[in-house]
Design a binder for these strands. Structure first.
Lengths: 136, 136, 136, 136
DNA sequence: GTGGTCTAGACCACA
DNA sequence: GTGGTCTAGACCACT
């Protein structure tokens, strides 16, 4: 069996998690984009092929892709396929900082309501970062 | 009726998380007990006041308290309030980690969509932490 | 038959238009918001009732509402209903002008590719404006 | 081969409109003929050049040209190009209005979501129109 | 072969 | 009662 050079997202579903299938797919695509396993312009598996892979209904995959499209994360071309869009959300530095402040604040508040301290959050993020370096 | 000094849990709800409100409340109470932010015998906010605080239906708060009572984590005294019972909640490290993993994941994805790397997030959090230390 | 004081969106579908049902519903909600026939916080018809009204499958209505939710136009609370969200997109004047310039430019280009002059566009918009005044 | 002075139609595609690319091309050709921007005997861009211009699959352009030929609106001469035939296209006022209604509607909705009223849009367009008059 | 739309119907979870 | 998820399957449109 020849190895292919194509990086692929390894999709997998956990039926016991309680998280809906289509959300698990969305999350996995988002994560793959976030850590560079899939790049702008690359094609996602076709609706049907992914449905077969995961042994689920094509409609469920389509729903996930559809939501990703609405959010502007992928572009879809009928008869061609589904592709990661180049949505860059480019902002100037000031705006960037303002956005970061906003989402970080809600992260801290939410985490805080579960009793996590900022120090713990930092440690946890470091763990993730290390984990990702490793994979590279 | 003597006034008690209520140490308050800071509740917060995330409607977008997909986690039902009542479960978010339960989790937050359990976590608060698990790490000692609230102690045996202490009173939880009343159903109505918490409902107002969170702008949700009192039934939803009642459902959360009800489930906590079923599990033996709180005692409800008609006309008086809801109090933490002595029973140790079984929230272990694994559960804690799962919660943290969930909220951190969405934080990373959201920040990532604005182009922030995990390293940047860590730096930013460190800045906030330092800032808060100072204030102490 | 007593008249009710509730302003309602009058939904209607045109099966011959070629426009998918769910998109027609989305458009009608958007238009109703755009010209103030429905306000922030108001509830949309329930999925099932609208489905009956329009004699279509509830899934189709749900799909429309779902897309509106993803776009942040409505908020949905399980077991409660679907409500117009207060998404204000408030920007300062400069940013506002920049946004307006952008969307107007693409409007002009697109219209231009079909041979419409700016004067024609202005006339057409005036017509719409007059039409809406009338309805008030 | 003599160079011809190609009066070019300014094609533009909107992937989000839901209107298939090939139909957008057909419409734009028809509209251009209808209002005299392109005349009988004039040449359309080649399939390949237009495909490159619009960054789409040549098959899609070919399909559009093909349908135009079937309708007798253009003649294709193997190895030479595609030319406007003498046949008057039947685009009437109603069709024109329908196209205009479509693109104007999405313009209004998009602008409306940023809080712009139709009156404001008209004012802004007037400003642009005046600006362009000046330049002449 | 690609995605898009719609239906019918089941089952679940929340308020 | 509300909305949410998933399946099965049909039919359509675009490349």
């Amino acid at each position: 069996m020849a190895e292919t050079t194509l990086k692929k997202i390894e999709f997998s579903l956990d039926p016991k998690s309680g998280v809906p299938f289509y959300k698990q797919i969305i999350l996995q695509v988002e994560m793959a984009i976030a850590d560079g396993r899939i790049l702008t312009g690359e094609q996602l598996p076709t609706v049907r092929s992914l449905a077969v892979d995961l042994s689920i209904n094509p409609n469920t995959v389509a729903r996930a892709y559809n939501e990703l499209e609405i959010r502007g994360i992928v572009n879809t071309q009928q008869g061609t396929g589904t592709f990661i869009s180049g949505k860059k959300t480019k902002l100037d530095e000031i705006e960037r900082e303002r956005v970061l402040a906003g989402i970080t604040q809600s992260f801290i508040i939410k985490a805080g309501s579960y009793g996590f301290s900022i120090a713990e959050l930092i440690e946890y993020l470091k763990g993730i970062e290390a984990h990702m370096e490793e994979k590279k």
